[in-house]
Design a protein around this nucleic acid. Sequence first.
DNA 1: GAAAAGTGTTGCGCTATAGCAACGTTTTGA
DNA 2: TCAAAACGTTGCTATAGCGCAACACTTTTC
Lengths: 189, 189
Amino acid sequence: MHETLKSYFQKRTQITEQKLEELAAYFKEKTFKKNEFLLREGEVCKSNYFVVSGCLRLYSINPEGLENTRYIALEGKFGTSFTSLITGQPATEYIQCLEKSTLLEINKDDFFLLVENEPAVNLVYRKILESAYITTQKRIYDFQGSDSLQRLKFLIEKHPNIFGRLSNKIIASYLGITPYTLSRLKTNL
Amino acid sequence: MHETLKSYFQKRTQITEQKLEELAAYFKEKTFKKNEFLLREGEVCKSNYFVVSGCLRLYSINPEGLENTRYIALEGKFGTSFTSLITGQPATEYIQCLEKSTLLEINKDDFFLLVENEPAVNLVYRKILESAYITTQKRIYDFQGSDSLQRLKFLIEKHPNIFGRLSNKIIASYLGITPYTLSRLKTNL
DNA sequence: GAAAAGTGTTGCGCTATAGCAACGTTTTGA
DNA sequence: TCAAAACGTTGCTATAGCGCAACACTTTTC
């Protein structure tokens, strides 16, 4: 099994080398070009992706045509449209590679079968859901309770690495502001 | 077991009457007065609560002293500070009864023990997390992509029942706007 | 059941952010 | 490698929502 994924599991559950190798069989390595799409709005999401290298972005386009960046998955993270994966409904979002990326893809049906039948995967999935929930909650409170400048400062503090790696346009759309405003806020830092 | 909780489980998993009775032993019925607190900011959350009747509200107070309502649990829902329950960290929020309420309380340790050892509870918890995640996601996209009037329309469409039951002050703080703005928006509907 | 506290509405001025235009810089791709 | 496209910044104006104050109405409390 790929080292990055292996340590992802080992960090979250006790699991034997042998079991890891069994699980490895379900993941297929794929490479994607910069800007390539893994999923488009309206399609049903069929896979979960683990990022070995590169970077995924989940985003939607609102009725006015503006992009809203929902989530960024860097190396060592799973990225997928969980909502579509869980509900089986068409996604309301796009998944795009922001860089040339190497991913490990696991089929939706295999994934949920493992969740049901492999205690280690059940536990890891629970931890993924718990941490996704907590992250998402914090993001709401950020939007609900803070102004743009505070949100920007918070992002710089927590993910300094993405500045420089992602364009300001994308960072602005993640913060829920326009690139104009982001550019102006940066002068107030 | 209390009928409301029983049907909550039966709607989400296959479970025998006998197993339900076993589980019932872990829940204690308690009643609370209007405005009584179950948890205050800074305390570690020790229980999960199922609402039999009445209504819970989770909220925080920001540095400027403004309340942000995070979640409302009506009859037939679980309500707790999941983030504090999961992480064991002090809560960043208050849990308050908005009405005289009857709740079924389950201890945190018992709850997670059942998650580990009772497949039915494991499954139900997973479904709670999945749906909490999905709900929270939608709420972000609402904040990130819509203006206040759209958010209000959306809330009216989805939860018409809470208008009349909750004060405008609380609805405004849920929408992330001031009561002044809510009052004005309502004239534009 | 009277006083106090809380709630909802509205006028007014203030602030943060949007959105267009213009322009220089960087990136992209045939 | 060079033209075209995309990006980042900044001046300007427009607008959504804030927050105070005032007032009427309702609910709570003792």
